Computed example of a mutant assay.
Amino acid sequence: MNGQVRDALSPFRHPCGGLKVRVNGEACVLRRSGALWVVAPRTLIVSDLHLEKGSAFAARGQMLPPYDSPATLARLEAEIAELDPAAVVLLGDSFHDARAIDRLGAADHARLQRLAVGRSWTWLEGNHDLQALAGALDALTGQVVSTLRVGALSLIHEPGADPEPGEVAGHLHPAARVAAHGRSVRRPCFVTDGTRLVMPAFGAFTGGLDVRDPAVAGLFSQPPLVAALGRDRVHALAWDQLV
Score class of each variant (00 low, 15 high):
Gly166Leu: 12
Ala238Asn: 11
Cys16Glu: 15
Val191Trp: 01
His157Arg: 04
Ser154His: 15
Ala215Leu: 14
Asp7Tyr: 10
Ala27Glu: 15
Gln241Gly: 08
Thr72Gly: 08
Gly194Val: 05
Ser55Gln: 12
Leu64Glu: 07
Val211Asp: 12
Arg177Gln: 12
Ala169Met: 09
Gln113Glu: 14
Gly18Met: 09
Gly54Cys: 09
Leu155Val: 09
Arg183Tyr: 02
Ala58Pro: 00
Ile45Lys: 00
Asp93Ser: 10
Asp84Ile: 01
His173Cys: 07
Val243Trp: 05
Pro66Trp: 05
Thr147Gln: 13
Val39Asp: 15
His128Ile: 06
Val89Thr: 02
Val226Met: 07
Gln143Ile: 08
Leu90Phe: 02
Leu209Ile: 11
Arg111Cys: 14
Leu219Gly: 09
His181Arg: 04
Asp84Pro: 00
Phe95Gln: 14
Ile101Ala: 08
Pro159Gln: 13
Ala161His: 11
His96Cys: 12
His157Tyr: 12
Ile45Thr: 00
Leu155Phe: 11
Asp193Val: 01
Val29Ser: 14
Trp121Ile: 03
Ala179Ser: 08
Gly142Leu: 03
Leu49Ala: 11
Asp240Phe: 02
Val226Trp: 04
Arg212Asp: 12
Gly61Met: 01
Asp210Gln: 03
Leu44His: 03
Gly118Cys: 07
Ser47Ile: 02
Thr147Ala: 09
Ala134Lys: 04
Leu197Tyr: 03
Ala86Val: 01
Leu73His: 04
Glu164Lys: 07
Gly25Lys: 08
Val211Ile: 10
Ala107Asp: 15
Arg187Leu: 09
Gly18Asp: 12
Ile80Pro: 00
Thr122Pro: 00
Cys28Ile: 13
Val145Ile: 09
Val234Ala: 10
Arg177Phe: 02
Val46Thr: 05
Phe202Cys: 02
Gln4Lys: 14
Ser94Glu: 07
Val38Thr: 08
Glu125Leu: 12
Ala176Asp: 08
Asn24Val: 08
Val23Glu: 14
Arg99Ile: 11
Ser154Pro: 02
Val89Met: 00
Val29Trp: 09
Glu52Gln: 06
Ser47Glu: 10
His181Lys: 05
Arg42Cys: 13
Leu133Thr: 04
Pro70Glu: 11
Ala110Cys: 06
Arg149Ile: 09
Gly218Val: 13
His173Met: 08
Gly170Tyr: 07
Leu115Ile: 06
Val243Ala: 11
Ala180Thr: 03
Ala56Asp: 07
Val46Glu: 00
Glu77Gln: 13
Arg111Ser: 13
Val185Ile: 11
Asp93Ile: 04
Cys16Thr: 15
Ala116Arg: 01
Ala8Asp: 14
Leu172Arg: 01
Leu229Arg: 06
Arg22Val: 10
Gly135Gln: 06
Ala179Met: 03
Arg111His: 10
Gly182Met: 02
Leu73Tyr: 06
Arg103Asp: 13
Phe220Pro: 01
His50Thr: 10
Ala161Phe: 05
Gln222His: 10
Ile45Ser: 00
Leu36Lys: 12
His173Asn: 07
Glu158Lys: 05
Thr141Trp: 04
